[in-house]
Design a binder for these strands. Structure first.
Lengths: 263, 263
DNA sequence: TCTTAAGCGC
DNA sequence: GCGCTTAAGA
């Protein structure tokens, strides 16, 4: 059986919000090392990979590997019944077809128990290659969300180009063009409380990829989970966009770039 | 070419918000004295006049007179991509058909460049007469906005009547009547921090004009630009409603009164 | 399309 | 902390 107690239940709520617009149904694979999920969106264009390590739970127990088939919309609805400060405990029997969720209010005054019916879902276990990327950009997740939202008003796709000098997000549409350029922060620790977090760029090779803004906008639903986002890019290879989930794991999105031909 | 750098970029955002609901497309006329715009609303009922003096920009350069035909909705969308603290620089070539906008974040970490395609717009240069009015009311712009909004719930038009005793905004509809009376503030500098700014009235002749609340509501979009608004009225003559734009210019609206016959 | 809920700015 | 604008849901 599975029993996993998450002190900061709001994390789970944010995680599901960050996935449910991309994936309807998915298997949560539970083992003694933790809980993971891998799924493609319905159009099979983007891939989402979630990992929650067992030591992020207190306690965590998983005797046998379990694959819990879950409708994320239903799960989201139930999680909205929990308070943001609640402690959430997930329970599932080895042979059962329900996921039991316990919501405990901080002062123990309220105890909610919800049971979610599980589904059988054909799992498409996608071998996600552990690859090296030519360029890694780490930046403020809210700034990333802002840029993606801004450029979405102009067109459907954005071209992200990175050099040592900085990273550029550019698009063009009927109204005109838009381009945002971020300089990596001077090594000097500018504690000028300049609002946004510093951008850092590591690259072995300049890169330029063109991505769907609609999907990127979907991914930025994960921004509430982490102050920073990491973009990993290599030309013509799916981009990896990584949000850490507190100290306990991550949500990663993979998105194939559009092949660079003028439309 | 034009190059105009506005330190307080948020002013430009507010200006466009204050115009775009009234006018879809308009020419921004640029000369060495500054940037101006004059346009009527699509129903040709109201007139909007914007002036931004060159010395409000730092620096300002305009070699030749330029008329930039702009779709205000597109401009608004692009300006929303700027941060509220950004410095905004406008650039246009003499023979070009684009307006380039630079948004610089305060700490220079982010640099955005947007290009707006320009349009050819038949300019209807309306000779706006410099006229004397019988009555000038200066009052809090937020209070004005509040009154207009409140009375809008009762009917479509408001009758503004001013005497030395004060100014009255009155309307009547199916529900009933509404009337707001503002006394000019006593000459004594009442620093009673009474919330709202004092009202002042100068008049050579009592006036009474009936105006469309729908249009007045449109005009109050300019309230964020200035703490005060100035109403200038003469019976049966278009009313002038003036919001100053910081120290650098103004937005003025002209609205013809309804002819005073019971509907 | 309208209503409601969340995020952002003042 | 309050109000507003914007995004999601009915």
């Amino acid at each position: 059986m599975l029993e996993a107690r998450l002190t900061q239940g709001s994390l789970l709520k944010k995680i599901i919000e960050a996935i449910k617009d991309l994936v309807q149904d998915a298997n949560f694979d539970c083992s003694d090392s933790g809980i993971s999920l891998q799924a493609m969106d319905s159009a099979h264009v983007a891939l989402c990979a979630l990992l929650l390590k067992s030591d992020g739970f207190e306690p965590y127990r998983c005797d046998r590997n379990l694959s819990l088939g879950i409708n994320l919309n239903s799960l989201s609805k139930m999680l909205k019944c929990s308070g943001n400060d609640d402690v959430i405990t997930l329970k599932a029997d080895d042979e059962g077809d329900i996921l039991t969720m316990l919501f405990e209010s901080p002062n123990q005054d309220r105890l909610c128990e919800y049971e979610l019916k599980l589904m059988d879902i054909d799992s498409e276990h996608l071998g996600i290659p552990e690859q090296e990327f030519d360029c890694t950009v780490k930046m403020s997740s809210t700034e990333f969300a802002r840029i993606v939202r801004d450029l979405s008003t102009l067109n459907e796709s954005v071209t992200i180009s990175a050099t040592k000098e900085g990273v550029r997000f550019a698009t063009a549409g009927e109204m005109g063009k838009g381009s945002v350029f971020l300089k990596p922060n001077s090594s000097v620790d500018d504690s000028s409380s300049s609002g946004s977090l510093p951008t850092t760029i590591q690259l072995s090779e300049p890169v330029s990829v063109t991505l769907s803004l609609k999907y990127l906008n979907n991914f930025t639903k994960a921004a509430p989970l982490s102050d920073t986002v990491t973009l990993q890019m290599t030309n013509d290879i799916p981009v990896l966009i990584d949000f850490s989930v507190g100290e306990i794991g991550y949500i990663r999105y993979f998105l194939a770039p559009k092949i660079n031909e003028e439309e």
